[in-house]
Design a protein around this nucleic acid. Structure first.
Length: 414
DNA sequence: TCTGGGGTCCTAGGACCC
DNA sequence: TCTGGGGTCCTAGGACCC
């Protein structure tokens, strides 16, 4: 038996926690660079603000309704997420953190599941101020569905337990197929073409037919809807296979020197994530692009791949290689709006297979460890190539304080 | 003027091996 | 006239998730 616990309007709620005067008002959180809407309070949803729309397209609504706008504050959201997850871990036998705002729980052996769901809700709201919805069912896909019902129908009180097959079928018949976990836009169109419109229609499909006409993933979804559990609780997150750091720029880049800074910065960040993961990588890709939405002038996008001789987590080595790759794809005369780097070809250790003609590489592991230690405690040191004045830094004009993680930002109670 | 960021998995096709 | 069978690995592209 699985529970899916999901925070309601997570980012928007985090912003209102320390600004009680905002409760009951329409609040919207924007993506990095203040680009698109990525979270909305219930009030903002009621005004018809859609997920994913570019901020500049809803300027008029924002002014007219007095909608409160925030830049993404991931430091705050990550800290609030930790608090919620810690509470879940203390109340449930086993937890799989599925994303920043949701977790699957193993609830086998709990007798009164509905009471358990209500207790989760009460505790989390009392201890963090965040409201969650709880869905409980014999498979993950059904738990997702139940959670959806808990959010959609106020009469459920935010908790839906789907142990009974009749209730499962009832909810499935009320749920459009595009809401099912694992069914996206493309699949919805194809399924609709076959006369499959609700979750129940999909559930009644033949697994082997679905496997033949679609793929093994959707076949698994059908089984899960039928109550056959195919997806286990994954308590230990599997090691990453790639790490990406990419950003849109606050101001478009036209000088190579600025792009060099950006690529250095992204590479250093990616390597620092790699070290945090305890892994070593060998491959790196660098990409740069102009704004794909601008149609009236020619655009340019390109990517270069490279590999180091050994697996490493050394920022210096990767930065040098990244600069060479940038050189290969840089074209003068364009205004670039985004770039990034990707690390790949991971290994859990830095087993070194020395080749006969290999030049020995300087071992910087102690320097890396020192950098990480300093950055995790007293301050920030970085490669000089990342630049002091970053003209291209991302726009965050409506950033809230780091209420819970920075001494200066702790709210004062008067 | 202004349109995010970070992941995973599956499949098909090509190159290569014996 | 007639040209096998059984694999692996890699990559790109497409789908999905949050």
């Amino acid at each position: 038996m699985f529970a899916l616990v999901d925070c309601n309007n997570f980012y928007a709620t985090c912003e209102t926690l320390f600004r009680p005067s905002l409760r009951g008002k329409p609040v919207v959180v924007l993506s990095n660079n203040d680009g698109c809407v990525v979270a909305r309070s219930a009030e903002a949803k009621a005004l018809g603000i859609k997920m994913g729309v570019p901020a500049f397209q809803i300027k008029e609504e924002i002014d007219r309704h007095g909608i409160e706008i925030f830049s993404s504050n991931y430091t705050l959201y990550a800290d609030m997420s930790h608090r919620v997850m810690r509470i879940l871990a203390s109340l449930a036998p086993a937890v799989e953190i599925y994303s920043i705002d949701e977790a699957f729980l193993d609830v086998c052996g709990i007798r009164d599941l509905h009471a358990f769901g209500l207790a989760l809700r009460t505790t989390i709201r009392q201890w963090t101020g965040i409201t969650v919805a709880v869905g409980i069912a014999p498979t993950k896909t059904l738990a997702k569905l139940a959670n959806n019902g808990a959010k959609k129908y106020a009469a459920t009180g935010g908790v839906v337990v789907l142990t009974d097959r009749q209730r499962q079928r009832k909810l499935m018949s009320l749920t459009p197929v595009d809401t099912v976990w694992g069914v996206g836009r493309k699949l919805t169109r194809k399924l609709n073409g076959l006369g499959i419109h609700t979750a129940l229609d999909l559930c009644q499909g033949d697994v082997h037919n679905i496997r033949r006409q679609f793929n093994v993933v959707l076949a698994r979804t059908v089984s899960e809807l039928q109550g056959i559990s195919c997806l286990d609780l994954e308590q230990v997150p599997s090691p990453k296979k790639q790490i990406v750091t990419s950003r849109s720029f606050g101001q478009r880049i036209i000088e190579m020197g600025d792009m060099r800074q950006a690529i250095s910065e992204f590479t250093e960040r990616a390597c620092s994530k790699l070290r945090k993961e305890g892994q070593y990588a060998r491959a790196i890709s660098v990409f740069i692009q102009t704004n794909p939405f601008i149609k009236h002038t020619p655009g340019y996008a390109n990517c270069a791949h490279g590999s180091l001789p050994d697996h490493t987590n050394d920022s210096f080595q990767f930065c040098r290689l990244a600069q060479r790759l940038l050189q290969q794809i840089w074209r003068e005369g364009y205004a670039y709006n985004k770039a990034g780097v990707m690390l790949g070809d991971f290994s859990p250790s830095t087993r070194r297979q020395i080749t006969l003609f290999a030049k020995p590489v300087r071992d910087n592991s102690q320097i890396m460890a020192a950098i990480d230690r300093i950055n995790n405690t007293v301050g920030t040191i970085k490669l000089a190539t990342t630049g002091i004045h970053q003209q291209w830094a991302m726009r965050r004009e409506r950033l809230s304080p780091a209420y819970t993680t920075r001494w200066q930002d702790i709210p004062l109670v008067r």
